[in-house]
Structures are given as C-alpha cells and as structure tokens.
Design a protein around this nucleic acid. Structure first.
Lengths: 190, 190
DNA sequence: CATTTGTTCGGATTCAATTCGGATATGGCC
DNA sequence: GGCCATATCCGAATTGAATCCGAACAAATG
C-alpha cells in the first residue's frame, strides 16, 4: 500500500500522466494489477493518496517550525520558506514536483486547502508577533496573493526547462515584493 | 473544425477533463466521431487547438492596446489588465476559465509562452516610457513573478467556489504589491 | 482436519480512442 | 444535364487501458 503510492510517484515521474497505467504502477510496486484494487477503489484514489502524501509533507515541513519562523524578519522568512519548499519538491529526482505540476488535473477541487490554511495561520501568528503589522489592511487578500502567487510562481519556475531567471533572484524578488509592500503600507498609514 | 474546438470547450465545461470523450465532442459539434480525425490527429490536438485559441484571445486583447497601456499609472494598469483578463475568462459561462484551470498544468511544454512574451514586452515598453523606472534592478525576475503570480492568482481565485476575498480586493492588492515594490526600489536607489 | 478470513492473482468485461473502407456531397468541366 | 475528382463525412471494427470477479492460496481458528 505504501509501495503502491510510492510506485505512483515513480511512474508519474517516468511516464507522465497519460503514460501512467495501472499495469505500470502494479509492476513497479511488485504486485499484480488486481491487488491495487484491494486498497484503492480506482486509479483516481491512488492519485488522491499521493496528493494527501505531498500535502502532508509540506504541512509537516512548516507547521512545527511556526514558533521560530514567526520571529524572523520578513525577507529571510520568505526566503526560508521558498528554499525549503524547493528542496522538498526536488527531493527524489523531483518526484513531488512532477506530481505538483499535474496536481490540478487530479484534484479539481481545491485540495491544497490544508497548505493554505497552514500558511494563513502562519501569517496571522506572524502579524501577532509584530504588533506594528496589525495596521496592515486586508490581510486575507494579501495572504491569498502571497500564498498562491508564491506557490505557483515557484512551481512554474522549477518546471521551466529553460528558466530565464535564477531561483535566487526569484526568491529575492518575492521577498522584496512582500517586504516593500509591508513597508509601503506602514509608511502610508497615520 | 471551428465547431469542434467550440465543442471541446463546451464539453470540458460540462464534463471536466476525464468526462470529455471524443463521442461527446463529436456529438456537441454535430459531427461523427470519425470526422474529428479528419481535422485532428488525436484528441490531444483538439486540446492543443483550444489552447492556441485561448492564448490568441488573450494576446489579441492586450497586444493592440500596448501603446495606450504604456501611458497609464501602475496601479490602474494592473487593475485594467486584471479586469480584462477576468472578463475574458468568464465569457460564455467561464468556458475559457474551465480550460485554463486545467491547461496551466497539463500543458507539458510551456505553451503559455506567447502570453508571457507579450506581457514581458509590455513591461519593457512600460519601463521605456517611464525613464525613472530604468533604475529598477532585475526586470526579468520581477516580470516573471508579476506575470506568473498574477495569472495564477486570478485563475485560482476565479475557480474558488467559495472565495474568501473579493475580486476587487485582489486587484487592489496586486496593484499595491507592484506599486509599493516599484516605489520601494526607487526610494532605496541613489 | 474443516472452516473461516484475508490476500493475491490473472483472465473477462467494459468503455474510450483511433482506424478504415465505403458513402455522400461539392464543384469544375464537357 | 451528365461525369469525374476531390473533399468531407460516417459508424462499425480494432485496440488497449481500467476495472471487476471468482478461483487459488495461505494463515489463523475451532
């Protein structure tokens, strides 16, 4: 069962979505096709399990570190999150990255929710630890932008076969984006 | 042929990716299954054609207006682009939006390239019309962030069945993000 | 040992994508 | 009009993948 999900990632990485058949998965996992259906009702459920696995990894990576993250300056915080995120995605020959770049295909409904909630939570905690930030308006909207913009920009950059910008520049850019925004908003306020 | 591509959007909108079979497409288009293959080598090519169609629409929407867009202030410019983009995506019951929410992923090659290039072009022209902006560092990286972040954030917001933030707030937020960034960078420079 | 329970298997079934040979329409030419 | 060339269309037949199912096997229990 663990092996099947594992095999799913491997096959996806090797053969892409279309090329990933139940046969392949079964073969890689070292079981017969019929056995897949002992654990999963259909192929979709295998992908679901893979999805949950990735989501859980991301959450586990950040969640326990929220207390320390909350104490950091904005730009280093952004950088820290992005680098960690990249490392996770590139682990095992980009296994998770491959999955992610197809994710919406499998999970039509918003199944990145747990990650979203966790990051929103981080944002709220962060603001509470930096009292001057409470003057920022419309936190939900800014959170939505930063979280989604950040995640997709990184995925898109990592999947780009010929990136025109370096990842480091991307990280610095995103950090500045957030940093300047906060500084700008605070400077404007009364 | 036009009807087939059209049917593709309709079926995708009605049945999702998995549910979109050649039968459906043929039926909606009012032709037989066999006829599809007179025009397209396989189903994938139909999706490709749909893709090109959307991309062309987006480019046609912005490209001719670059001369006037280039004269606008940053925040109104961002707002203008985003609202237009939304309107396009929501046209015909969100036909293009549906497509986009899948396309962003399952286009293995970067087939959003024309849009990227066009927006990069807009960015460059914009900077040339606002000489003080030439002091901004790392334009490619910032362009990458703004373009990708913007596109995906909007798509993600529009596909969210229960958005927690209003589209107007999103637009204002993205505008501020870019605006404050530029102002911040300029204030820092010598 | 007989029976139950759980696990694995590989063939049978179903359904969608694609192919193909023939049918039908169109339009230029006598 | 009649005739052919070409383009277009059709839908039954093929192929291959997903899924189902009942037999085989093994371990556990009485």
């Amino acid at each position: 069962m663990r092996a099947i999900v594992e095999a799913g990632f491997i096959s996806l990485s090797r053969n892409g979505v279309e090329g990933t058949t139940t046969r392949h998965i079964a073969e890689i996992a070292g079981v017969s096709v019929g056995s897949l259906y002992e654990y999963f009702a259909n192929k979709e459920e295998i992908f679901d399990a893979m999805h949950q696995h990735v989501v859980a990894e991301v959450v586990d990576m950040v969640q326990p570190r929220i207390p320390e993250l909350v104490r950091m300056e904005i730009r280093p915080l952004v950088a820290e999150l992005l680098y960690r995120f990249r490392d996770l995605l590139e682990r095992d020959d980009g296994r998770y990255l491959r999955y992610m770049s197809y994710a919406a295909y499998f999970a039509p409904r918003n199944q990145l929710e747990p990650i979203n909630r966790m990051l929103m939570n981080l944002l709220v905690q962060y603001v509470m630890h930096h009292p001057d930030l409470t003057r920022l308006g419309n936190l939900p909207a800014m959170g939505f932008i930063m979280i989604n913009g950040g995640i997709f920009t990184v995925i898109r950059h990592l999947t780009d076969p010929h990136p025109t910008v370096a990842f480091d520049d991307l990280v610095r850019g995103l950090g500045d984006m957030v940093g300047y925004f906060v500084e700008g908003e605070l400077a404007r306020g009364p």
